[in-house]
Design a protein around this nucleic acid. Structure first.
Lengths: 224, 224
DNA sequence: ACCTGAACACCGTTCAAGT
DNA sequence: ACCTGAACACCGTTCAAGT
């Protein structure tokens, strides 16, 4: 749906790009398709965006601004031990926003330029950890340890079944021939989970990994 | 350098693709350029590879096979508490291999098909953890908590300076206006590190994050 | 069975020309 | 200043034709 009345602007171009990615996936985000979306020729976009790389930088900026807005709204004063609850809440809120833009993590990982909204997000997180009693040195390590988890996502490269899809007995036996340990794990874990719900819930696993790291950091906080 | 004597095979095509990516970056890996590398037309490649996606799957397979070979060579019997040392060694060995193929992590994250070599890697890791006293249920969570770290890499999306590049005083002051906490952290961390060496070493940070997770898992191992 | 040349349908991007 | 149409240099991929 082209909105041709309003004149173009960087902001309007970027928002249209996010709409396309949300609706049709990141693969649908081409300069020609984006021109169509804003009711202009593809070439007109270059007056508001340097090139496609710049477009993708801007698109990430829009999404992380949405995260920052959501996270700012829930903020509480932090002192001492409650740092963990506050950090956890921020990160899970970031994750909620990203679930509305499932293509965004993939794009974020291709960016190399520092993004002001990403900096803003981490700046607040550093402030929170410092108020919570962390040394700057430990905070620096903590940011690396969290990595993309700080912003609410992890890129899974090992997807043993789709979570919802419980493997059949036949599939398990075929797997067991080549990968006995994996098959053993799957047999037990899928059995415990029952068959109605998926045996592998992304949200649960994200929170598990996050808590392992946050607990570990909390322990280091009090010992160094 | 085209080697036109030997006839084409999937293996030879994939190895040539890895060579191109190693030498000129993943951006240089096009079907036409790959054809050139093996001394054939681009279209001949389609007899050995279904399409570019399949090519990339195969390229990842080659790299992870290299990891598996390196990891198999160093393996030790594992019982009880020494699981951590063994897992750590495997993962850091995987990382060493990936440092020779810096483009590989980015490609791995775009793959959606299960890769037999990735399965083999995780199968051995599951076996190691199980021998170390982990329940299959905890192992399943552990794999998710580790994510790509299990294979020796993390995708950093927050690169506050290049590690080697210590920010200047002027840069710090400009940053402080918008991001006071980040600037405070940088000021202290870069000062402590001195100016000769980089203040932010990828290997050190990788090991820090890895140890936080492994230590956390070890604690859970003994309590559930 | 394996390889090829020409062609097709897409990209991002340039450039000179319009208003 | 902003926008456009035509064109360029690339992609991955198809297809009919060669051996």
């Amino acid at each position: 749906m082209a909105e041709s009345r309003v004149s173009l602007s960087r902001e309007r171009v970027l928002r249209a790009a996010v709409e396309i990615a949300d609706g049709n996936g990141i693969g649908a985000l081409t300069m020609r398709r984006l021109g169509e979306q804003v009711g202009a020729e593809a070439m007109s976009l270059y007056h508001h965006v340097a090139n496609k790389e710049d477009l993708l930088d801007g698109v990430v900026e829009i999404v992380v601004r949405e995260i920052n807005d959501a996270v700012d709204a829930i903020d509480l004063p932090v002192t001492g031990a409650d740092w963990k609850k506050a950090a956890r809440q921020r990160i899970l809120t970031a994750r909620e926003v990203l679930l509305r833009h499932p293509w965004a993590p993939g794009v974020m990982e291709t960016r190399t330029n520092p993004n002001p909204e990403v900096l803003r997000y981490h700046d607040a997180l550093v402030g929170l950890l410092h108020a919570g009693g962390f040394s700057y040195d430990l905070i620096h390590h903590a940011l690396h340890a969290l990595g993309s988890r700080a912003l609410g996502f992890t890129q899974e490269l090992f997807d043993p079944g789709d979570g919802s899809a419980t493997p059949t007995q036949a599939e398990l036996e075929q797997l067991a021939g080549h990968f006995p340990h994996l098959a053993g794990m799957l047999r037990e874990v899928t059995h415990d989970a029952g068959t109605t719900l998926g045996w592998c819930d992304d949200q649960t696993e994200f929170e598990f990994g996050l808590d392992v790291i946050l607990d570990g950091l909390d322990r280091l906080r009090t010992t160094r």
